[in-house]
Simulated assay, not measured.
Amino acid sequence: MTIRHDGLLVDWLGYATTRIEAPDGTVVYLDPGRYGVLSGEWTPPGEEAPPHPAPQDDYPKDGDLVCVTHDHHYDTDAIQRVAKQEATVVVYEGVDAANIDRDVTPVDELPYEVVRVTGEDHLSAAGVECWSVPAYNDPDGPRAGPDGSVTHPPGFGCGFLLSVADVTVFWPGDSDALDGFAELDVSLFLANIGGTVVSDRREAAALAERMDPDLVLPVHYNTIDILTTDSGAFGADVAGRGVPVVLDEN
């Protein structure tokens, strides 16, 4: 199902993969791939299939801009499936193939214009304004172990705030629901609701209320066991707070 928002066409394609198309045809992908969601190999976690997009298996190669937040979402097969030959690929500076236990191409060997960003950068590419923002699990927060260890420590990844056809879209990446996110001017909030190693549905709903976007679309849930959640309960929670929300599921 394609979501329409202020002239944008938005599709959650599974895991963190989100496709955004502007009225002029410009296409942006956020964190494409992993777990077979773009190669037709994804299988649902558990005995009963939870709400989640069906896996894709094609090579659209229509992406003008591809953004990658951190190592866990770096999938070079997926990038090559979605990116145009002349695409710009924006990759957080901490992404390093040497630290990834999967078969991926090093960032500097990708056959595209590659731009590395820190946690606080701004660039323009393919007619899209792109800001990176700090995103992480707080060592003193709800994702931390007894020793303060977290899956996504500060400096491990980033989130992205985009202005696509003058519509702001925010994807926090793999992060807690940080206070700073509520200060952003966001029209479409791609809420991370999977819990366990990222914000859960209750934390994301509370953030959505503080952020007060024009629309909330949850993504990055029900792909693997540790991200299973009740998206319907999230939608009801957000709607009950007076914030428009939509689900993109099969």
Rank of each mutant, 00 (worst) to 15 (best):
P146H: 08
P23T: 06
E48Y: 07
V246M: 05
P53N: 05
V186H: 01
I100K: 05
P111H: 13
S124Q: 12
I20D: 04
D200S: 01
A144I: 03
A177I: 10
H5S: 04
D214Y: 09
D103N: 12
V27L: 01
A204I: 03
R102G: 00
Y221V: 00
A144G: 02
D31S: 07
T168R: 13
P106Q: 10
S124V: 14
P51T: 06
P146G: 10
S199K: 06
D147R: 06
V91L: 00
A22E: 07
L123D: 09
L207F: 11
H5A: 05
A135W: 08
D214P: 06
T168Q: 08
D179H: 14
M211T: 14
P44D: 02
D212W: 09
D237W: 14
I224T: 13
D11V: 02
T229Y: 01
C130N: 14
V219H: 12
P172W: 13
R201I: 00
D237M: 14
D237L: 13
A233V: 06
H72I: 05
L110G: 00
H152R: 07
P154V: 05
D108R: 15
V167K: 06
H220F: 14
L184R: 04
V128W: 12
E249N: 02
R210A: 15
Y112S: 07
D75T: 01
P134F: 06
L65V: 15
G36H: 05
H5E: 04
D230W: 04
Y15T: 00
N192K: 08
D108V: 04
L207A: 05
D64E: 09
I20A: 01
D24E: 10
V243E: 08
V150Y: 02
V107W: 13
K61W: 11
H73E: 13
P213D: 10
A97S: 14
P23W: 06
I226Y: 15
N222P: 01
R81Q: 03
A144Q: 03
T228H: 13
F160R: 06
